[in-house]
């Protein structure tokens, strides 16, 4: 099982979660790798993404896990980047024995929001509709009379909870 950290910027920020899934699948195939497939009526590659982010938001901290035969990790990263569409860049890769279940485990994220005057950093829990980053920005604008939009925000960190501590996935799940 491989875990890959990647960024989603430029034109790729307009890909929906499903679009992203398709784009990564195709990138892997173009790079010449054959992931393991699910069994069943409609087999699909065993690829899982970290929790969805709003369309229009840039992120330098997205993840996916992939079931695939052991492979040269540096070469894998290089090949993937060579076959990627504009705006997807694969940053780190490591191996784990079992699926860390990132879609469920990633519970916090950090965003940098560059405003009209000074940048600010906020921490927002995910999965609770009331405090999604787009809503946060909306509230911030109302409070401060600013005109910030998702275009001003970048998701820079994702966190999983280990014991009582929030850590980034690559620290939490060291190489197998």
């Amino acid at each position: 099982m491989l875990v890959v950290k990647f960024s989603k910027t430029l034109t790729a920020v307009y890909m929906s979660h499903l679009d992203l899934m398709r784009a990564i699948n195709r990138t892997i195939k173009r790079a010449g790798y054959e992931p393991k497939f699910s069994q069943g009526h409609n087999p699909h590659a065993l690829l899982k993404l970290s929790p969805p982010i709003p369309v229009g938001l840039s992120s330098t901290s997205e993840y996916f896990t992939l079931a695939i035969e052991a492979t040269d990790k540096d070469k894998f990263l290089k090949d993937l980047n060579f076959s990627a569409p504009q705006g997807l860049e694969f940053l780190k890769v490591w191996e784990t024995e079992k699926d860390p279940g990132l879609a469920r485990e990633i519970i916090m994220a950090e965003y940098e929001i560059s405003g009209l005057n000074s940048p600010l950093t906020v921490e927002l829990p995910l999965g609770q509709k009331t405090v999604r980053v787009d809503n946060y920005i909306k509230e911030y604008n109302e409070k401060h009379g600013t005109f910030l939009s998702l275009k001003n925000a970048v998701k820079t960190k994702s966190f999983v909870m280990i014991g009582e501590k929030l850590v980034e996935p690559f620290t939490a799940y060291p190489q197998a």
Partner: peptide, 19 residues
């Protein structure tokens, strides 16, 4: 043009950047 993308459905239609 990029600003208006946040106000429309399916903005991926208008942005290109294909492989």
């Amino acid at each position: 043009y990029e600003e208006i993308l946040l106000n429309v459905r399916k903005p991926a239609r208008y942005i290109g950047g294909e492989y």
